[in-house]
């Protein structure tokens, strides 16, 4: 119970920091927009082609955006010398990770939901009829990105060339998330939309595996 209370306080702090400046959210939204527009030049976005490539490029742009967006997560603490204070403030370091990864999931989900209508218009895809199901896929996928992403942000913050290191560490690891989310999104955007429970279950499994890993090894990730 104390874990949840600590996490709520820390989550409040993360959200306050971000919504004061909204730097992360605005830059990520613009980044996704740029990628989505640039992608349309690489193939002819007719209806059939969009159905085939759309979900993949949507998730690819989310993944790239996330690997940049997760960067400041621990770097901010390190630059301001607040990491030790943060560690001392709570008994269980897992609550720090829970707060940070919840905040990251929320930010990712927010930018994704904002970009979804733009994507639907540019690629002529029927998003509205399956919107609630799509949000479920987006949520599980974003969680899958944010969980290892938050952990690796703590790792890359300690390295040189950290801006390049985080995508290098994170993107190959996210292969399963990319496949599962793309398949689930693709099935929803077909002519006969279908909610692929098997892929959703797979995403949930991925989330559980890495959440458990953070629970086990989180304290080591925060060493300075």
């Amino acid at each position: 119970m104390a874990l949840i209370a600590d996490m709520a306080v820390l989550l409040g702090k993360e959200l306050r920091t971000e919504f004061r400046s909204r730097e992360l959210l605005t830059t990520t939204v613009v980044f996704i927009l740029v990628v989505v527009v640039l992608f349309s030049f690489t193939f002819d976005p007719s209806i059939g082609e969009s159905r085939r490539f759309g979900p993949g490029l949507l998730w690819l742009s989310f993944l790239f955006a996330a690997s940049l967006m997760l960067q400041p997560c621990f770097l901010r603490e390190q630059n301001n010398d607040t990491l030790s204070a943060l560690r001392l403030s709570v008994p269980d370091p897992f609550s720090i990770f829970l707060a940070k990864l919840s905040a990251n999931t929320l930010f990712l989900l927010l930018t994704e939901v904002l970009m979804l209508p733009v994507f639907a218009v540019l690629y002529n895809l029927p998003v509205l009829p399956v919107f609630p199901q799509l949000v479920l896929v987006l949520f599980l996928g974003s969680l899958g990105v944010a969980i290892p992403g938050t952990a690796f942000s703590a790792i890359s913050a300690q390295a040189r060339m950290r801006e390049l290191m985080l995508p290098l560490l994170l993107l190959p690891l996210l292969t399963p998330v990319l496949i599962a989310s793309t398949e689930a999104t693709g099935a929803l955007l077909e002519a006969n939309p279908e909610l692929r429970r098997d892929w959703l279950g797979f995403l949930a499994g991925f989330d559980v595996v890495f959440l458990t890993a953070i629970w086990l090894f989180g304290e080591y990730l925060l060493e300075e």
């Binding site: 690796f152 790792i155 399963p176 599962a180 797979f202 991925f206 890495f210 890993a213 090894f217 080591y220």
Partner: peptide
């Protein structure tokens, strides 16, 4: 320490990559 932690995460990913593909 940090490379060991990354190695552990990477190895956990192996079965997930295999089954997803």
């Amino acid at each position: 320490m940090f490379s060991a932690l990354f190695g552990i995460f990477a190895f956990l990913d192996v079965p997930l990559v295999y089954f997803s593909i």
